[in-house]
């Protein structure tokens, strides 16, 4: 479908798209870019992902490509990848993928091009001062006796647990049930709501327990500790007999996963060098965290921050570009 559309409209489209995307540098190597068609990179809902995407995107622009950043939901982007509506998404958390992920791989049109190199953590967090209020933390069993501490008017007498937004995919409702913890999962609607919740709780030293993740700039501003849950094992998610609750699944921690880059297979033919570049591309927590802080805490412009990183880290990205240009 996409190919026929492309050949049909390519000639006319080129003009329009060039008009739409400005600022691309002249090609640095022979034959690159192989196509003037924009490479569409998916932007999801959190800042870290934006950084990952912009670093790759700005580097691709330097290589001479036209790049378009496309806002897309975490799950729908998988469908969009299968027909090249979106060409690549660069921060897929293995701990949180859902059925759309497998479906898109099964289509044969989507490939994984290696790990991003980021070490992600998804876990239950609490601000450090909460440890004094609920003795026994960070061990999860301490939470059994603290449910009233975390209770609020709307959840009393159960504790209040602030969970991920429903559309991010969370298994905490099962986890609570399986671990026998008396907490009500309150879905946060968005990253902003979660951050506001943390800010407000810390400012007033209010008890708070919630699902959160790292890398995130909030860790540069507030001290938060991870609750130690029974360690994750694959069996825990599908074998009820595994773990401390013999009759239920999810009686363990979140998976300490890794982060994958996913690419539409068609890229290989349309922009071979860009495809090789995305394969080489990596980014670490140490790269991301200062940039996150610059953007979200200091309120700086993302492109400016990313350009600065690119300017200071030529030794990091030169090899990727060189390999790609071969």
């Amino acid at each position: 479908m996409k190919k026929t559309m492309r050949t049909m409209l390519a000639a006319a489209a080129a003009g329009v798209l060039i008009a739409g995307v400005s600022g691309s540098l002249p090609a640095q190597a022979q034959g690159v870019p192989e196509s003037d068609e924009s490479i569409k990179l998916a932007l999801n809902e959190w800042t870290g992902q934006h950084i990952t995407t912009y670093v790759a995107g700005e580097l691709l622009k330097q290589m001479g490509y036209n790049v378009e950043y496309v806002t897309a939901g975490y799950y729908p982007q998988m469908t969009a990848l299968t027909d090249g509506t979106i060409d690549a998404t660069l921060e897929i958390w293995s701990s949180n993928i859902g059925e759309h992920y497998q479906k898109s791989l099964d289509s044969g049109q989507v490939v994984e091009v290696g790990d991003l190199g980021l070490a992600p953590v998804e876990a239950w967090y609490y601000p450090d001062y909460v440890a004094e209020m609920c003795p026994g933390l960070p061990d999860w069993e301490a939470l059994k006796n603290c449910s009233e501490l975390f209770a609020t008017a709307d959840t009393y007498p159960s504790g209040r647990f602030v969970d991920y937004p429903p559309d991010w995919g969370t298994t905490n409702v099962d986890r609570m049930r399986s671990l026998g913890l008396d907490y009500v999962n309150i879905p946060a609607g968005s990253e902003g709501a979660m951050v506001a919740e943390i800010e407000s709780s810390v400012a007033n030293r209010k008890p708070l327990i919630m699902q959160f993740w790292a890398p995130h700039w909030i860790h540069a501003v507030h001290d938060m500790t991870i609750v130690t849950l029974p360690p994750h094992e694959a069996a825990c998610y599908d074998d009820p007999s595994w773990g401390i609750n013999p009759n239920d699944v999810y009686d363990c921690d979140w998976e300490r996963g890794y982060i994958k880059k996913m690419v539409w297979l068609g890229m290989k033919d349309e922009w071979p060098a860009a495809f090789r570049f995305l394969h080489e591309y990596t980014l670490t927590n140490a790269d991301q965290e200062p940039m996150m802080k610059a953007i979200d805490v200091d309120g700086r412009d993302i492109v400016e921050v990313v350009q600065e990183w690119i300017g200071n880290n030529a030794d990091r990205w030169k090899p990727w570009v060189d390999k790609a240009m071969m």
Binding site: T152, D154, A188, G189, G192, S200
Partner: peptide
């Protein structure tokens, strides 16, 4: 939404 969350928590 944000200031209301700051004042009255998620829910």
């Amino acid at each position: 939404l944000i200031p209301i969350v700051m004042f009255f928590s998620i829910g």
